[in-house]
Design a protein around this nucleic acid. Structure first.
Lengths: 202, 202
DNA sequence: CCCGCGATGACAGTAACTGTCATCAACTAT
DNA sequence: ATAGTTGATGACAGTTACTGTCATCGCGGG
């Protein structure tokens, strides 16, 4: 009686493991090959060895399959804000948080670039990206309030930090070779300070 | 032979005039009454005395019907940036632009509030709002570049300005009575300058 | 009076998304 | 082991947003 033990990580479904990950991979491939609009959910599911119905059990819609790591990112950002030294001002705490999540993207430079090219090519996906960033901004503002930062200031610092991230990330994915995302973010923060340091309001 | 001259402004379609405006009005009403998701495009068209097909000739999708004035807003913003005095820095030019479009909303406080309540209640609509704001940020950045502002600075000033607008607008629509949007924006700008001033907060 | 143009209606079709129930693999208790 | 339970999946029907295509209608010009 030969017992063929396959049993990899099998923490999931009844067929192959990691159905969610297979769907994400299949979607990234197909969106890259044929374009987002030309790809149907049924095709993604078929490439992943699943059905369309199962796709929608894992992801709320056709766009969400590209935005998996949102909660992890949010957790790390808020944790880093909470861990910033008491002496740090709001914007410094946000800068420290962005610095803390830099490696999350740096380790996946090529994948980040592929993903970003797809997102930038389709308005629907850009919309989803923007609301994800807005969610991160809300989380950052909440973490700042936990530090005792008052309200217009907390939201403004968070939004400014997300703006810095957007612009630095864009430049990072545009760079042809290997670039340093954290460095790009630090430079953008410095630019922001320079820009807002202009002559006081009338 | 009595000739009944109705003939109002009749610059549009073959039936009643202003089909587009009727669709916008019907949508705002129905989204408010039943909610966005519970309203079908066919219902909007019927209330406007038109068909579903005609709705999609005027608006790209079900969300766009709430975002009509985007181009006007963009034109006024960029014009105001161009018209800012040479002595003004990037952020000051953006502040002047926001100040210039304040009345556009101030005149329609009640309508702005109704619209905002609908948008905030539905993620799809918030996404659309965010991409509209991002489009405005791009336009602002372009106008700043026309003034000779360099590149990371132009985008950062534009994004910071849009962040100020978002937060001020949110507070303005939250206020119960009559509030001043321009004043809210000026205060938010001052807060932003304080937050980015480098020196730690209290 | 006819003719062309632009906006609308009518109708069929695709694909995203949802609700519901059956099915199947793994796990648990006995 | 065997049976029952649980959770993920498949199968299938249905709604609705959105698109392509052609016919129709009102209006203005020749």
């Amino acid at each position: 009686m030969t017992v063929t033990v396959i049993n990899y990580d099998r923490a999931m479904g009844r067929w192959e493991p990691n159905a969610r990950g297979r769907l994400e991979e299949a979607a990234l491939e197909l969106y890259g090959e044929r374009g987002y609009e030309q790809t149907t959910v049924a095709e993604i599911a078929r490439r992943a060895g699943l059905t369309e119905r199962t796709f929608f059990r894992h992801f709320a819609d056709k766009r969400e399959v590209l935005f998996g790591g949102g909660t992890l990112l949010e957790e790390r950002l808020t944790a880093a804000v909470a861990a910033a030294p008491d002496s740090a001002g709001p914007l410094e705490a946000v800068a420290a948080a962005l610095d803390a999540v830099g490696p999350l993207f740096q380790e996946r430079h090529e994948r980040s670039r592929r993903r970003q090219a797809i997102i930038l090519a389709h308005a629907e996906l850009r919309e989803r990206e923007l609301i994800k960033l807005a969610t991160l901004a809300r989380a950052l503002a909440g973490a700042l309030r936990e530090r005792g930062v008052g309200e217009p200031a907390a939201s403004l610092a968070a939004e400014a930090g997300i703006a810095v991230f957007k612009i630095a990330f864009e430049r990072w994915t545009d760079e042809p070779g290997e670039a340093d995302l954290r460095q790009a973010m630090r430079e953008a923060f410095a630019e922001l300070r320079a820009v807002t340091a202009g002559t006081p309001a009338p």
